[in-house]
Design a protein around this nucleic acid. Structure first.
Length: 114
DNA sequence: CCTATGACCGTGA
DNA sequence: CTCACGGCCATAG
């Protein structure tokens, strides 16, 4: 179960740099499954409380830079975690052109070095 | 094997 | 901008 797709998804998510985000579609693409965005979501959903601590799941967002996670505390927790990494929300959304995987500009850091 | 589900995505009204 | 559809993928019954 963890030797297959799930493990791959988690591995890919772990590769997302701190302070940046990737969309479900991008993660799927990295796995070689161009249209497996939903499958990625399924894998992350399976984390629920489990080894979520070892996977920076908060760095995966929807293609529109919006949090896809649904629920009551879920969305809030994810946002809080991302903001703690320096990811800024504008109008409930994240500027992917700025915080995306390897986009041009450099993301802001929570702790600037003087 | 077949149907249902979901932390998706793009398109069109 | 919001809402509805259809398509896609891996898993769970």
């Amino acid at each position: 179960m963890t030797d297959g797709f799930f493990a791959r998804v988690y591995a890919a998510v772990r590769r997302i740099p701190r302070g940046r985000v990737a969309t479900y579609g991008q993660v799927a693409l990295l796995l070689g499954v161009p249209r497996g965005a939903r499958a990625v979501g399924w894998a992350l959903r399976a984390l629920r409380g489990r080894s979520a601590a070892s996977v920076p799941w908060q760095r995966v967002v929807g293609a529109g830079g919006r949090i896809s996670l649904r629920g009551v505390s879920g969305p809030f927790v994810q946002r809080k975690r991302l903001e703690a990494e320096g990811v800024r929300f504008v109008g409930g959304r994240i500027d992917l052109a700025r915080y995306g995987l390897q986009q041009g500009r450099r993301p802001r850091r929570p702790r600037q070095r003087r």
